[in-house]
Design a protein around this nucleic acid. Structure first.
Lengths: 224, 224
DNA sequence: GGTTCCATGACAGTTGTGTGACAAACGGCG
DNA sequence: CGCCGTTTGTCACACAACTGTCATGGAACC
């Protein structure tokens, strides 16, 4: 379950938020001060943090900076102030979103979901992706199975990279045609053929693929 | 330089946004319709997309879905409407943020920066619907029971998704025929058969279904 | 007890996928 | 430039999986 930490000094608002979040299916808990919030997040990190800007003691901006210092957790500011300066300052401090009170819980929930969809901060250069005994190194342009390099052609490599980049998700033949070949339209069987060839090279038992699987009627996906 | 595509039909607003974005150091260009925006994004992808909801022809929601289908570009909705339903629907469709017009350019710019900070979608984090021990992941094209993947066919999957989308509510056979099969009319027994097959796969005891239940004379529903 | 409604197994027709063969296009290289 | 090995895309066929129809028997309702 997704855990949410609410840092808000007003008891009524904090409790209302917690209840509403629980209602939405989150596991929610609160902190009345920035210090307490930071401590709780250090001890048991939540998946999302909601933070008010006007807090006694350490203020919201400083709280965001400190949270951000050792954590990529999505931070949403929930504040009564809708001043552009505050919004910009909060986002610059490291917040990911800013909503103005009073806030509809459905909206908040949707924003949290949207944030979680965007993952953590990623370093640009993905050195290598690993799928079980399969390694794909985009930089080296090389594929290995069980440590041994496997010779794949350019098209096969691009196809594999595309699937790897969206690992775990189905990609339709149309999408693959567009993204690997740049075709807006074309014969979808082309994808089948290359998937087949790729399987011959990267799957121990090509007839029973473990990584590059078919989803009948949908497309293909690469799984770990 | 960071490129921003602005999809907005109102010429004055679009130009104002473009100018303001240029001022902020972006390379900005526009499209007056969803179709044009989609085409431009396909041909030369921008780093961010701003999109209005009320567009002639293809509307903003559909535009977002299509953008999202083959691109992880951060999408920000810029709309005059501040209705919670619109906000939730846009975020669900795949938007990453939603701001209400008139918008301060400094805020918009800060939000764009915040979004770019969060990298690409982490492919593993697939949003899945959960019903007790049952998980439905549209992106992975897969259904799991108690963590184990269950092989369901395309029709079964669509049927399950339809039921999940209206979880807790009864759907008549007619409604299911229309929504899953696209039949305006047809043999209602067809639904029975597929529900039966689905039960074999997703219910621990298919004869005593816990999730996919029959409401005699009414239809079927999926409950938690 | 009669009637309606639903579950299920069997079956034939259809659709989707894997694969081998082949020719065209490509890319080094002498 | 002309040669040859490699890669790429097309096609056809075989096979497996899926779909929709039907018939039967059982459960729920009145």
């Amino acid at each position: 379950m997704t855990a949410v930490l609410v840092i808000e000094d007003d008891d009524r608002i904090r409790l209302a938020l917690l209840l509403a979040l629980e209602e939405e299916g989150y596991s929610a808990y609160g902190a009345a001060t920035a210090e307490e919030g930071l401590r709780r997040q250090r001890e048991s990190p939540a998946d999302n943090v909601l933070v008010d800007l006007m807090l006694p003691g350490l203020d919201g901006f400083e709280c965001i900076r400190q949270l951000r210092r050792d954590d990529d957790v999505p931070i949403v500011v929930v504040s009564a102030r809708d001043d552009t300066h505050d919004i910009v300052a909060a986002l610059e401090a490291g917040a990911d979103d800013y909503v103005v009170k009073p806030v509809a819980i459905k909206e908040l929930s949707a924003r949290l979901r949207a944030l979680r969809r965007r993952g953590r901060v990623v370093v640009d250069a993905v050195p290598a992706q690993v799928f079980g005994d399969l390694e794909i190194s985009a930089e080296a342009g090389e594929v290995r199975r069980a440590g041994r390099p496997v010779a794949v052609t350019r098209t096969e490599f691009r196809l594999l990279c595309e699937l790897a980049e969206h690992a775990g998700r189905v990609l339709s033949r149309q999408q693959l045609l567009r993204r690997v070949w740049g075709y807006e339209t074309g014969d979808e069987r082309l994808v089948d053929v290359h998937v087949g060839r790729l399987r011959q090279k990267i799957e121990p038992d090509p007839a029973n693929p473990r990584h590059l699987v078919t989803l009948r009627g949908l497309g293909y996906k690469l799984q770990r």
